[in-house]
């Protein structure tokens, strides 16, 4: 087997991050978990330990509080003896209705998904570059590909994030930083609970496997689950007058 990765994972307590933590620990990678609740982080640590390598530790890190980012990454670096991979699955969703009703909520979603995720990535990529590079994998969304009626604001937050990640990739790939933008389609997790699932909705386990493969292959962009790549190719190609008419 290859030497295990040393990975910082922000967002492992639920959904696709939880699924990723299982796949990575099962193949022997070393994990350090970041999240908002210690009791919850300890449960994910235990969950990984049953069927894989036990994550070496965890620390608090809240995307609503950028003052904690440096310390959290520092703790991870210490525990892992220098990390080589950073993964961010953490993110926030609310329906367009709720976001239109509540500007404070809208500000939070924009801040968590865009501003503060970018700030977190800036800390992470500097640490990675300082030791010659590594992998930075961040979950954006297909929602950032086109302005669409049901996801105007959430989509904008992910569009901004995707744009930033693409820029990083262009600027730093030659220096050894491999930035992967993950663009999931609809996946059954707590985030999408209660929403009407489209056909081709996927499971977090399938996304996790695809993403691990893409990280290892050094890809820049990956769509998951599979059918979303061609679907988004079509949606990107639709003229504006069509997008204005359709409801998705």
């Amino acid at each position: 087997m290859k030497t295990p990765r040393k990975i910082v994972l922000l967002g492992a307590t639920k959904g696709m991050g939880r699924a990723l933590s299982r796949v990575l620990s099962a193949r022997g990678d070393l994990l350090f978990l970041l999240g908002r609740d210690e009791e919850d982080l300890a449960k994910t640590q235990a969950d990984c330990a049953v069927t894989g390598s036990e994550p070496v530790g965890f620390a608090l890190c809240d995307l609503e509080d950028p003052t904690g980012f440096d310390a959290a990454l520092g703790a991870a670096d210490l525990a892992l003896g220098g990390f080589d991979t950073v993964i961010v699955t953490a993110g926030m969703f609310a329906t367009q209705d709720a976001l239109e009703r509540d500007p404070v909520l809208a500000a939070r979603v924009l801040t968590v998904n865009f501003t503060n995720t970018v700030v977190f990535c800036e800390f992470a990529r500097k640490m990675l570059l300082a030791r010659g590079g590594g992998a930075l994998c961040v979950f954006s969304s297909v929602a950032g590909e086109r302005g669409r009626k049901p996801i105007v604001i959430y989509g904008a937050s992910k569009a901004g994030l995707s744009q930033y990640l693409e820029g990083l990739d262009h600027k730093f790939r030659a220096s050894g930083l491999r930035v992967l933008t993950v663009k999931p389609g609809f996946v059954h997790t707590g985030m999408t609970e209660g929403l009407k699932a489209p056909p081709f909705a996927g499971e977090p386990e399938d996304v996790a496997r695809t993403v691990v493969h893409a990280i290892d292959a050094g890809k820049a962009v990956v769509y998951a689950p599979m059918p979303w790549a061609p679907i988004m190719a079509v949606i990107r190609a639709l003229p504006r007058f069509v997008m204005r008419k359709v409801g998705f």
Binding site: T44, A46, D47, V50, T189, G190, E193
Partner: peptide, 16 residues
């Protein structure tokens, strides 16, 4: 169904 974590496993007794 989303509460799907394993909280501990004792290899000695097999208790999950």
């Amino acid at each position: 169904a989303l509460a799907d974590r394993l909280l501990g496993f004792d290899e000695g007794t097999g208790i999950l």
